[in-house]
Amino acid sequence: MDIFGIFVSAIFVNNIVLAQYLGNCPYLGCSKEKGVALGMGGAVIFVTLLATLFTWLMQKFVLDPYGLGYLQTIIFIVVIAALVQFVEMFLKKAVPPLYAALGIFLPLITTNCAVMGVAILVQREGYDLLEGLVWGLAYGLGFTLALLLMAGIRERLDTCRLPKVMAGTPIALIMAGLMSLAFMGFKGMG
């Protein structure tokens, strides 16, 4: 599959939230305001890229040669968690503005299933490093897109008069379901 195909497929057809149902916790938790949604999306793009790179190298040079494939899940968790911690410290020292923008989101996605899912799916699809990185970037962008759409809708919902039982999480879950249905329209294109 060509790079462009991977890119489009990962953003729309296989959108990580709306088609793969990964990362639902930040999807609902960080989608109340557009600014917060953008910050979270940026942090996820950043971390998925790094995590894809490191887990790909880990798989290629450690797990595969020594036949440790059955430890993939647990080892990826350790690698990603350590990586995010490291990146957090690095950013705090080296790029304070970026830390101020992404800092509070980094601990939230330390062991997020969206990041973890991208790392594992890249291995399952058997992509090479470049394809894997494009896929990771596109998944991050897809996550940001879903989060931003949701935040926009929820900001509008704030000014609507909703029945008390529906306000807050219930209506957000219904919106998530409807958006997921809408994205089902892309199925079969990839």
Partner: peptide, 17 residues
């Protein structure tokens, strides 16, 4: 093997951190 490899990974990660 799995215990040792995870131990090694944890050790390396903690030293780096």
């Amino acid at each position: 093997v799995s215990i040792l490899s995870l131990f090694a990974l944890g050790l390396v990660a903690s030293i780096i951190l």
